[in-house]
Write a protein that binds this DNA or RNA. Structure first.
Length: 407
RNA sequence: GGGGGAAUUCCAGAGCGGCCAAAUGGGCCAGACUGUAAAUCUGGUGGCACAGCCUUCGGAGGUUCGAAUCCUCCUUCCCCCA
């Protein structure tokens, strides 16, 4: 099967990519690959530290997928050995927690299952870098370290910053980029994918490859995907992410809350919609564009039909204020009632919609609490509400429940 | 080893003997507006039997009518000197 023309390949590869280093070697590599009908080996490494894969992770993963579709060879490196060190990238301090080998392997399996939703695992090579690092002797390690100078290491941004700030840099952390680079030598990568913060390791890999007299890899770096807040990078700890395992409706709700400003980036990095078409969409009504974006992404992890259904449901429940489809039922003991009635504030607490009486009082005082099918506003905290099974209660737009009375 | 700082309510950060449940900003919550975007405006953001009461300002004691604010010890973190 012949590879597509170089221009076509370049257009696909360059989409949504922030930096290619060195840029000028890419075309040459592709040309040689095509002429000799040899797929390029495209490396992507991760540390199995327990990852709930979200859209931010899918950016480089999707790039691998694109390489696969162009006929190239995906090579996934599970950093089961490097995980023992901890990636110093983007950290001001050394990582504290150390994982056990078992945890690492369980994480790796879990990770691969998720990754399979984006790339074609059946056609990918998967390696664990412990396969080669575990076999190295101390002499081997010394030999490897002999190829890298401290001065070189210190050119790395993270380390330079830490040096300046006089915060500790542990010796084993210095080894991290060396190990990552050595992976590239072992698997003979032609391309390595990752975020822009990986530049140093990517370049070190080139040095080591040159030293080993094999072809040097090219770094293809994706930008950092911003999260739902439109400012900070998408990440689990920041709570501003969309996980690829979430339900279509949950994803839809999150997408619709994304600031308009990030739409173009999302379109470019998370969908295959042609750039020209994106321009057209962006020129139209933002809400339409956002819905299209959401459906395009959701459709990758669920069916197109499910994505559409989620969009419709969103329009009805959120856009038009219809009652939510799935309202959780909360069991309430009849003993909480006096002659079938309960005080409004008490009721909100007893049903768990709010956690304290004070919170309930606030919600009511501010007009943020409602009851019944017609969403009647609760007026006072001591207002008596007649409670029966099926009664609906709301606090704000996101919290609601249906009461079920128990004897 | 010696010296000097700092620990405040989700975060940052005021407060330095009563007017402190504790300024201000951020975040978050609710309301208005809207495309549940952004921006903007309003209110709120310890608890409770809520016009009052109770528990908070690293921990333990102490001084005082009264302490987040003063003293002692402890814990943790930071900085400087050698």
């Amino acid at each position: 099967m012949p590879f597509p023309p170089i221009d076509e390949q370049l257009a696909i590869i360059r989409r949504g990519v922030e930096k290619i280093v060195p840029e000028n070697e890419l075309a040459a590599k592709l040309t040689k690959s095509r002429d000799t009908n040899t797929p390029l080996r495209v490396k992507y490494g991760i540390d199995p530290t327990g990852i709930d894969v979200h859209l931010g992770h899918t950016v480089p993963l999707r790039k691998i997928r694109q390489f696969q579709e162009l006929g190239h060879q995906a090579v996934i490196i599970i950093g089961n050995y490097t995980a023992l060190v901890g990636d110093p990238s983007g950290r001001d301090h050394a990582r504290a927690k150390r994982l056990t080998a078992d945890e690492v392997e369980a994480n790796a399996q879990d990770y691969l299952a998720q990754v399979g939703k984006v790339i074609d695992l059946s056609k990918a090579e998967v390696h664990r870098n412990g396969d080669w690092f575990a076999k190295m002797s101390f002499a081997d390690i010394l030999h490897l370290c002999g190829k890298v100078t401290i001065a070189q290491l210190l050119t790395r941004d993270d380390f330079a910053k830490r040096m300046a700030a006089e915060s500790p840099i542990f010796l084993h952390e210095c080894l991290y980029p060396i190990m990552q680079a050595w992976d590239s030598v072992v698997i003979k990568s032609d391309i390595e994918l990752g975020g822009t913060e990986q530049l140093y390791s990517f370049m070190l890999a080139r040095d080591l490859q040159a030293d080993a007299k094999i072809s040097q890899q090219i770094g293809v770096m994706s930008p950092i995907l911003v999260g739902l807040d439109g400012v900070r990078r998408m990440g689990k700890s920041l709570g501003n992410y969309i996980g690829i395992s979430e339900s279509p409706f949950d994803m839809m709700k999150k997408f619709m809350q994304v600031p308009d400003g990030v739409m173009r980036m999302y379109f470019e990095l998370l969908t295959d919609i042609p750039l020209g078409e994106i321009d057209t969409l962006m020129a139209g009504h933002p809400k339409t564009a956002k819905t299209t974006l959401a459906c395009a992404v959701i459709g990758q992890y669920h069916s197109a039909a499910e994505a559409d259904a989620a969009a419709n449901r969103w329009q009805q429940e959120v856009g038009e204020g219809a009652l939510p489809t799935d309202i959780p039922t909360v069991k309430l003991s009849r003993s909480k009632l006096v002659e079938n009635k309960a005080q409004a504030a008490r009721l909100l607490v007893d049903t768990g919609l709010v956690s304290t009486t004070s919170e309930a009082r606030r919600a009511i005082a501010q007009g943020g609490a409602y009851f019944g099918e017609s969403k009647t506003r609760l007026e006072t905290h001591d207002q008596l509400i007649t409670v029966e099974t099926g009664l609906l209660l709301f606090v704000g737009k996101k919290k609601f429940c249906r009461v079920e009375l128990l004897d």
